[in-house]
């Protein structure tokens, strides 16, 4: 008897496609399954991160805060030294002092004018000018996101800081509002953020006597720490160097906070509104401490 022995090839069949794994179709199916699995795992990973977003971010900020504070201080110092070199001698310091003095004076002048114009009592003027009407929380700046126009401060909801609270400097310059509050930290959306809109009034620089007419408008952020003026009526008289104050109409920010000065004006009869560029008063790079207004009534 002769036995014929034949070699037998064993093929593993894919139960779903009914085709062997070794084939092109089989390997393609395997590839797409692998890809699908990878995408599902990634989405799950991102979903879990978002569920625990608050604790994850707060813990990260808590751990890194000392380093960030150190970096911020160092950066401030180096920036100032560099700027001093560029500006030859003490011009930088002198300029900073003058700017601060100017802002203080502007704050006092505008608030006085506003109050007198409304024919209110002197006591009320003092209340507004001295900031005593606000319950403030002081916070240190520990981070800046220039591209997104956000600041990070070291106060969170454990310190009574919540979302949408206005953030100002000691000179009553408006910086923005709390965008997101974590346990010990908060993200502040600057008024220069592209999503930010502040209702303002334009205080004419030429007519500073009593009875000057305030022009309403809106200051919008355009990113990269810059602002522009919009929605000013085309027949309103505005000039370069006119000061912009918050009007409080949008219900997020208190009125009479300093915002900036008009730099250029774009007036076109074809357009219903005037627009313009603004020199902002805020300078996040030179700011160490900010104040959060905790008791301002907000509509949002």
């Amino acid at each position: 008897m002769h036995f014929i022995i034949q070699s037998v090839k064993v093929k593993y069949i894919n139960m779903h496609t009914k085709k062997p794994f070794g084939s092109i179709q089989g390997s393609r199916t395997f590839f797409w399954k692998k890809m699908l699995l990878g995408i599902v795992v990634l989405l799950l990973f991102i979903w879990v991160l978002n569920i625990f977003q608050g604790p994850i971010k707060n813990t990260t900020y808590l751990v890194t805060a000392p380093f960030q504070h150190f970096f911020w201080k160092t950066g401030n110092t180096i920036h100032d030294i560099g700027a001093s070199f560029l500006n030859i001698g003490g011009l930088q310091q002198e300029n900073a002092n003058l700017k601060q003095e100017n802002q203080n004076l502007l704050s006092s002048i505008t608030l006085l004018q506003e109050t007198i114009r409304e024919n209110q009592a002197i006591q009320e003027v003092q209340v507004i000018t001295k900031n005593d009407g606000f319950n403030l929380a002081m916070a240190n700046v520990i981070g800046l996101d220039v591209t997104g126009d956000f600041l990070m401060i070291d106060k969170g909801f454990n310190d009574g800081v919540f979302e949408n609270m206005p953030v100002i400097s000691k000179e009553k310059v408006l910086y923005g509002r709390v965008f997101k509050a974590y346990k010990n930290f908060s993200e502040v959306m600057l008024i220069s953020n592209a999503a930010s809109v502040v209702d303002v009034k334009v205080l004419p620089s030429e007519n500073t006597e009593f009875g000057a007419v305030l022009v309403p408008g809106a200051v919008k952020g355009q990113g990269n720490l810059s602002l522009y003026l919009d929605l000013v009526s085309s027949d309103a008289r505005i000039n370069q160097n006119d000061v912009l104050l918050s009007s409080g109409l949008e219900g997020v920010f208190p009125k009479d906070l300093l915002i900036g000065k008009i730099n250029t004006i774009d007036k076109n009869d074809a357009k219903p509104f005037q627009t313009g560029t603004i020199i902002p008063f805020f300078d996040p790079r030179k700011t160490d401490t900010l104040f959060i207004i905790k008791d301002y009534k907000q509509e949002k």
Binding site: F71, W72, G143, D145, V146, T147, S226
Partner: peptide
């Protein structure tokens, strides 16, 4: 990441900083 957040952003040119 830390340096970018707190240090390098202070040296922006025309409002832009390197990522």
């Amino acid at each position: 990441a830390l340096a970018q957040q707190s240090f390098l952003n202070q040296f922006s040119i025309m409002g832009t900083a390197p990522n």
